Amino acid sequence: MQQLSKHPNLKEINAYKRKLNWGEVPAIYHMVASSVGEVDGILSHGFDSAYKQILNPNNWNLSLLDGERLPTGETVVNRKPQIALRHTYNQMGYELHCFPIALNEKVNRTLVKSPHCPFKEWHPETMRMLFRINSLPSFLFFTHENGDDADVALVKYAYITVSRLIKILEEKFDIIEMRGYSIVEFYKEVDVRVRGSSSGYSEITSGLIETPDDSADI
């Protein structure tokens, strides 16, 4: 059977998965692959997202950032907006959370027209979670225990996709803090725990999977 290329795209990984499984794709794989595909095209999708919202300079506080909007429509700033990022794993999946910095503190509440917030408006209920990969923690555990080459390739592709989007944020923002496990670090932590325990998924991921209340914390 033909192997994957060194740097396969998502379409190639999905096709390879179907070959390995005689056309049948497990539901959890399909869910994760579909979600990764949505995140992969987040900047090209027509619909709005929190990730696209924070990149839109029309919502930036130009007074705080010592910036201006040029006649060409371009926005330039002398100080990048400051934010903090957090990798979050919960029952829904993997999420990248964002917190603006105001007066050297992470903000987790609504701010509108605050002179200290880098955004004109910040609504955490719709803007904090930049994107989500559904069911990723369960899939990482499944891949570690029973995954084939296509599953491993999908995990790597998810990591690359998230890293690319974080790189874009690094270019536009001053990221003063990054908390939580990256996808690769989470997978490695699961590996360490599996090797040291005969327990099931819930016990092994205890402390790694957050409750909704935990994920709202900063």
Rank of each mutant, 00 (worst) to 15 (best):
G41W: 01
V32C: 05
A50L: 01
S34C: 07
D66N: 15
E74N: 10
Y51H: 03
Y29R: 02
E38M: 12
E74C: 05
K80L: 10
I42S: 02
Y51C: 04
D40G: 06
T72H: 02
L43R: 05
G46L: 11
V76M: 07
W60Y: 07
L43A: 05
M31I: 14
P71R: 06
V39R: 00
D40V: 05
H45D: 12
S35M: 00
E38S: 11
L64A: 13
N56G: 09
N58M: 13
W60V: 03
Y29F: 14
G41L: 08
D40R: 09
G41H: 07
S63I: 11
V39C: 00
R69F: 04
D48V: 09
S49W: 01
T75V: 11
P57G: 06
R69W: 04
S35T: 00
G37P: 06
V36W: 03
K80Q: 11
D48R: 12
M31A: 15
K52I: 02
T75D: 03
G37Y: 08
K80M: 06
N58H: 13
N78K: 15
N56I: 07
L65D: 14
W60H: 09
G67E: 12
S35I: 00
S49V: 01
R69L: 09
R69Y: 05
N61Y: 08
D66R: 14
G73T: 03
L64I: 10
N61W: 06
A50T: 01
G37W: 08
I42Y: 02
N58R: 12
H30Y: 13
E38A: 14
L55I: 01
L62Q: 12
N78R: 15
N59Q: 12
H30L: 15
V77K: 09
L65A: 14
S35F: 00
S49P: 03
S34E: 12
Y51F: 05
W60T: 05
E38L: 13
P57N: 07
S44P: 14
K52N: 05
K52R: 06
I54D: 01
V32T: 04
L62V: 10
W60Q: 06
T75R: 02
V36H: 03
F47T: 10
V32R: 02
L70Q: 14
H30E: 15
E68P: 00
D66M: 10
N59D: 14
S34M: 07
T72F: 03
V32N: 04
Q53N: 15
P71T: 08
G41K: 10
G46C: 08
L62N: 11
D48E: 15
P71K: 06
V76I: 13
S34D: 10
V32K: 02
A33I: 07
R69E: 14
G67Y: 10
L65P: 09
N61F: 07
V32Y: 04
E68L: 15
T75W: 01
Y51E: 04
M31W: 05
V39M: 01
S63W: 12
K52E: 07
P57S: 08
G41C: 07
Y29G: 04
F47P: 13
G46M: 10
T75L: 02
N59A: 08
A50R: 00
G73W: 05
T75I: 06
H45S: 13
Y51Q: 03
Q53V: 11
S44M: 07
S49C: 03
L64Y: 12
K52P: 04
S63Y: 13
S34P: 00
T72S: 14
E38R: 10
A50Y: 00
N56W: 08
Y51L: 04
S49I: 01
L55P: 02
